[in-house]
Design a protein around this nucleic acid. Structure first.
Lengths: 140, 140
DNA sequence: GTGATTGCAAAATCTTTGCAGGGAC
DNA sequence: GTCCCTGCAAAGATTTTGCAATCAC
């Protein structure tokens, strides 16, 4: 934890440690508000403003990403910076991670052959919209 | 224009006609604010609140979509409801439409074979992050 | 010690709401 | 005529900012 922050060139404050830890444990790509709610349990004086600043610094340092979402009215964060895709559940508003190296390869090969005129692609992320089926957990 | 609104079950007010027309003509998936700026040229008394209400009603009626974006602080709208993908330019923040039926087929076939445990997929949209190359327009 | 980080409160953004008057059908 | 829609202004929600005190290194 402490090492991750050091690698990213960020000072390991008590607050950042708790925030990063919370972000890693909260499911479904939390908002700043959700991170704050979890974090005040351990650090009651930790302010929401600090959560915003810490999350911004994580994103700037490449420790964390912002997740694209269609609800727009609040930002969501993802501690997983590896290449992956997202399942958007229209019922619960959850955003579920979906890793599939075979799919990554398929997409990369497609664009290697076909190319994009006038655009240099850096990364791909597939947004799959649908809904969770009762009783069965989507694979992570 | 008027017919589109009627089909969607919405009353064709002067304001909605101008808003829908603007949305179709503005490039790069505008925000409510951007739509409003264009629209006041034709209808100076048209308020920003009305733009929000109209865009919401378009989305509810399936005439328009909200675009997922990672900047979170404002909503962006897309008048194109057909299946398509998006190029996200990290330099200009533009979101460019990208249609490719072959890619659609590729993705659909991939999931037809493999399936998603516990999730019923309805639609797919690929987010391609990268940057525009100087002097060359990405295909739309 | 030095410079980055925190906490707080105020401000800035973006979006929604309530309601009276007006307009589409 | 009826009910939906608009305009306005106020409220709500989310995010940013400024600055003095504090903490990591």
């Amino acid at each position: 934890m402490r090492a991750r922050l050091a690698e990213a060139g960020l000072r390991a404050t008590r607050q950042r440690l708790v925030i990063l830890e919370s972000l890693l444990h909260l499911p479904g790509h939390p908002t700043a508000e959700q991170v704050h709610r979890r974090v005040v349990g351990q650090e009651p004086s930790l302010s929401l403003g600090t959560v915003y600043k810490a999350l911004d610094s994580f994103v700037a340092a490449g420790l964390t990403r912002r997740v694209a979402s269609t609800e727009g009215s609040c930002r969501r964060y993802d501690a997983d910076c590896s290449a992956h895709h997202h399942l958007f559940c229209t019922d619960t508003q959850e955003i579920i991670d979906f890793h599939d190296p075979q799919l990554d390869t398929l997409i990369q090969e497609f664009f290697a052959v076909r190319g994009l005129q006038g655009f240099q692609a850096q990364s791909f992320s597939l947004h799959i919209t649908g809904n969770k089926l009762a009783g069965d957990e989507p694979r992570k």
